[in-house]
Every structure is written in structure tokens, then in C-alpha cells.
């Protein structure tokens, strides 16, 4: 059982993820360069935070064409677990594995703070152990995290119970306070907050642990 963390030029949370999953939680993890096309042997894949390809054009717009992500589409279709954190969430929306888009924060600031979050749906494995209606606190660190989607897409997210997390205090102007969503099947989760930065009791709480443990449970 092992986890792959895809590294793009400009990723900067890939080692944080590995520290959390392997260092704190003891799960075998390897980092994969984005040109890798073979995801066999992996049970879960993480797209980490950072600024892939300098966020040129739009956040995640160039990363989407990386060879590893063409393989990731098949991986996800076969039910493999995929977690996109921050820039990874942006990449998943550009790739079309998750609906909507992430845009500039409404107040323009890069926001770096702890965010209280509410679990909206615990139907996916990612949030089962938190329970629907549960609360957790995870750090956020982004300039472009304002989730946007059409009214139709929002209704679909609601109907499919695919809104995973909402902000307690909307920091960025996201539609419906959305902080994270899953795909219809529930095996793909994208979120702006950083669970990997909340796994080591020495550096800011452990509320992210159960979410990362769900990579391999």
C-alpha cells in the first residue's frame, strides 16, 4: 500500500505531504515527477499545494497537461483515491475531475491563517471519521481560493451531497462558503485548506490526520 505525491515544477508542499503521510502517519509514500506516466502500484495519489508552472495563465491550467495527469484521469476512473490540496484542488478543476473553478480571493489578499471548517458531507471516505456536522480547523494559505461555479453546478453538488467542507467564516468569497468538494463517486477530494499542515502535534494541531489516513484505509 503506497501513496504517490505528484511533483510539478513550482510545487512546494510535496515534502510537507510526505512528512505528514510517512513521517507522522507511517504510510509508505513516494514523490513522482510530473512526467511519470506509470501510476501502477499506487493506492492513492496526492496533488500537493504550491504554484505549479508558476500558475501561469491560470492556477493549474498548465499542470493539467502533465503526462502524470493523463494517467491520473484513468486512475480516478478506476476508483483510485485522489486528493488535491490547494494548488492540487485548482489542478483538479482545470483537469475536469472536479467541477467549478478557483478564482482570486474577493479581498485580493493572500490569506494565511487557521480556518474553522464544517463537515457538510461525511459520505466520502475522506470525512467519514469526522462525521457530518463535525468541526475541524485547518490552515489555509492561498491567494486564489474563491470557489466559483454556475447555479446548475452548485445544485448538482448539493443534490449529489458532494460539498465536503464549508468555511465557518468565509475568508475568500467562495460560492456557498465552499472549502472542499468531492466528485460524484466520492473517491476524489479537492480542498483549499491544508490537512498535511495539521498532522504533527508540534506544528499546529492534528485535525488533518484522519483525512490523510483515508488515503489508504
Amino acid at each position: 500500500m503506497s501513496i504517490g505525491v505528484i511533483v510539478f515544477p513550482g510545487s512546494n508542499c510535496d515534502r510537507d505531504v510526505q512528512w505528514a503521510t510517512e513521517g507522522c502517519l507511517g504510510m509508505t509514500t513516494r514523490r513522482l515527477w510530473h512526467e511519470e506516466t506509470d501510476l501502477s502500484g499506487l493506492n492513492a495519489v496526492v496533488l500537493p499545494g504550491g504554484f505549479s508552472y508558476g500558475d501561469y495563465l491560470r492556477c493549474g491550467a498548465i499542470a493539467r497537461f502533465a503526462p502524470a495527469l493523463q494517467a491520473l484521469v484513468d486512475f480516478a476512473a478506476q476508483g483510485g483515491r485522489v486528493l488535491g490540496i490547494c494548488n492540487g484542488f485548482q489542478v483538479l478543476t482545470e483537469l475536469g475531475l472536479l467541477p467549478g473553478a478557483l478564482t482570486r480571493n474577493s479581498e485580493l489578499h493572500f490569506i494565511c491563517e487557521d480556518a474553522p471548517l464544517d463537515v457538510v458531507s461525511a459520505r466520502s471516505p475522506w470525512l467519514q471519521s469526522y462525521g457530518s456536522g463535525g468541526h475541524l480547523t485547518l490552515p489555509i494559505a492561498h491567494g486564489e481560493g474563491r470557489y466559483q461555479c454556475s447555479d446548475d453546478t452548485l445544485k448538482q453538488l448539493q443534490d449529489e451531497d458532494a460539498i465536503a467542507l464549508r468555511y465557518g467564516h468565509n475568508p475568500n468569497g467562495s460560492v456557498a462558503d465552499i472549502a472542499g468538494i468531492t466528485n460524484t463517486a466520492g473517491n476524489v477530494l479537492g480542498l483549499m485548506p491544508h490537512p498535511e499542515r495539521a498532522c504533527d502535534p508540534a506544528t499546529g494541531g492534528v485535525d488533518g490526520r484522519a483525512m490523510l489516513e483515508a488515503l489508504l484505509d
Binding site: 478564482t103 482570486r104 480571493n105 474577493s106 479581498e107 485580493l108 474563491r146 466559483q148 468569497g173
Partner: peptide
Amino acid sequence: VLDPAGEA
């Protein structure tokens, strides 16, 4: 879609 940079 809100354009906060445009507004600023």
C-alpha cells in the same frame, strides 16, 4: 464572476 482586481 466578480473581478476584485478590476474593482481595486
